[in-house]
Design a binder for these strands. Sequence first.
DNA 1: AGAAGGCCCTGACCGC
DNA 2: TGCGGTCAGGGCCTTC
Length: 294
Amino acid sequence: MPELPEVETVMRGLRPVLEGHQIAHVTLRRSGLRFPFPLRFADRLAGKRIDTLWRRAKYILASLDSGEILLIHLGMTGRFTVIEGGRPKNLGEFYFETAAAEVGEGLHDHVALTLENGTRIIYTDPRRFGVMDLFPEAEAESHKLLRGIGLEPLGNAFDAAYLAERFKGKAAPLKAALLDQRIIAGLGNIYVCEALHRAGLSPRRKAGTMLRKRGHDPRLDDLVRHIREVLAEAILAGGSTLQDFAHTDGSAGAFQQRFLVYDREGQPCMRCGQAIERLVQSGRSTFYCRHCQR
DNA sequence: AGAAGGCCCTGACCGC
DNA sequence: TGCGGTCAGGGCCTTC
């Protein structure tokens, strides 16, 4: 479940491997993931240099010297393995031992990039919810997957006034509003649950109720602060996991030991001791404390 | 127009 | 041990 912090962590891990390097060769082991790969995908990547790598929402983006952008979404189970000097190194939230004879030959190894220096980057994605696309830079703003995405929650423009504006008149519950990528970029189920708990706000509360005649409920400021904090903490934890990736099985992203509510149904709330409850909102599990979150 | 639900996909897990 | 059902969920698409 890569959300913003996990995608950021993977992107930072790939940066030193990819930036400034030329793609020598691309192997596609199937015709697409969630969507078909773009026309002549492998051919168009070959020979191009990757200038910069960055993140927008849950997308990893690579600027190529050809003026094109390579877009990558990890879906639910996408991950990268980097092979430098014949030694595999996993980048990503999840790692599980593969029975494949060789990394890159596994059942779910769908894309392999080879760089001019011999480094190989394997994209593995069992569920194939991931996405890859390639398009001219000029089309980035109008790109179907990128247009209409809301503010980056770690950016300067993201504040309570912005949320108040976007929540105006909204009958949808806070949980749904925060998950809406058109409002905030990159939040997923886990961090929405965690941020709402930290802010003491019920996931069921209607988003529009956070407005006041003049301005907004002060707890909207708390919510913004907690969203930023939980994301920043998770990125730090992901970073530390990544650093000693060679020495860890990586199965436990450092941050998941710090969940206060997510996947803790029936366990005591860290704040008040009452049992954490689970409910289903728009088809997804929400975990929260009825007592602490109003 | 906005909201809700379906769908894609596979692995993990559970009960029998 | 094996098997079938259920769940996980990001984001597009369809339906209401």
